[in-house]
């Protein structure tokens, strides 16, 4: 049966665990997977540039012995000539075996999946979802902490538009005894559809705080995100808020020894360079893990 990954919840909890097990095995024994997707093609349909995510997908497919094709900016593609998503995906279905789509509009990959004859992976749609980043985050959390349950997870920064945060929250709360600490300015709070439908409806303990310092000591995971300039209507608000949520070695002092600091990357200045040398920094591992989970996902969706 044709499967897509549009929303992180398209995968059951059991499927997530088996994907992470597969990703762990790929990381340990990459040589066993070198020919796994031989003669298969991945199309990367990037309607907005995101070099890091695209390269991670392409590396994943190349590591599996497959090949890649695609576009990485809608100004060079048929999208700007007004072709609909539905038409584009029908055509791409004839060229490739699987595709990863990045689009500035929310719901574009879902729309594509309704017309596609090949698996569609959502590689980020507007401020909405980013499920492969979530799998990467889960793999890194499990690798660092040895479990996906009984964790106090702090998410910090832009929680309103930060799609990685929304996807992570929806996924991790399926595991038992998860406590969330939502750390953001008032203007960038988690949207109501997450707090109401997900957290309150499912009785997940959570607190909303305005300061990183208040939360630090109790955290097992600290998930940092970038506060982006383009999310603000005026420069003043941006300048006022951008520096309030910067992680420094000083702020890390009260934190647990076992804390893991995650960040979807690229960072600008929200984590100072000195933190990179702290053993609790896990974000470069996380970037590496992104390739392994995408390899596992390609194997799973192609039924290899």
């Amino acid at each position: 049966m044709l499967r897509h990954l549009i929303d992180p919840l398209d995968l059951s909890k059991e499927e997530v665990i088996s994907l992470l097990d597969l990703a762990d095995d790929i990381k340990q024994h990459p040589e066993n997977y070198r020919e796994k997707a031989r003669y298969k093609k991945l199309a990367t349909l990037f309607y907005e540039p995101s070099t890091r995510t695209r390269l991670s997908f392409e590396a994943a497919m190349l590591n599996l012995g497959g090949s890649v094709l695609g576009f990485s900016d809608s100004s060079q593609s048929s999208a700007t000539k007004g072709e609909s998503i539905a038409d584009t995906i029908r055509v791409i279905s004839a060229y490739a075996d699987i595709c990863a789509m990045r689009h500035p509009k929310e719901g574009a990959p879902l729309r594509a999946s309704h017309y596609s004859r090949i698996p569609v992976i959502n590689a980020g749609d507007g401020g909405h979802q980013h499920p492969t980043q979530t799998l990467t985050d889960l793999m890194t959390i499990r690798e660092r902490e040895g479990r996906l349950s009984d964790l106090t997870i702090g998410v910090c920064g832009d929680l309103k538009f930060g799609r990685t945060v929304h996807s992570l929250i929806k996924s991790i709360i399926r595991f038992p005894n998860i406590r969330l600490v939502l750390i953001s300015p008032e203007e960038l709070r988690v949207p109501d559809y997450i707090t109401e439908d997900e957290l309150k409806a499912k009785n997940i303990p959570f607190t909303e705080v305005r300061s990183l310092d208040d939360a630090m000591a109790k955290l097992d995971i600290l998930y940092m995100t970038r506060v982006q300039r383009e999310r603000f209507f005026n420069e003043e608000d941006y300048v006022r808020l951008k520096n309030s949520y910067i992680l420094t070695t000083d702020k890390l002092r009260p934190a647990k020894e076992t804390l893991a600091v995650l960040h979807p990357l690229p960072r600008v200045n929200e984590i100072t360079l000195a933190v990179d040398n702290d053993p609790r920094a896990a974000y470069f591992e996380q970037a590496e893990n992104g390739v392994y989970v995408r390899m596992a996902l390609i194997i799973f969706l192609l039924g290899l």
Binding site: I85, K105, G107, L110
Partner: peptide, 8 residues
Amino acid sequence: PRCITSAE
């Protein structure tokens, strides 16, 4: 305005 329904 960020929804695909507004773009197509």
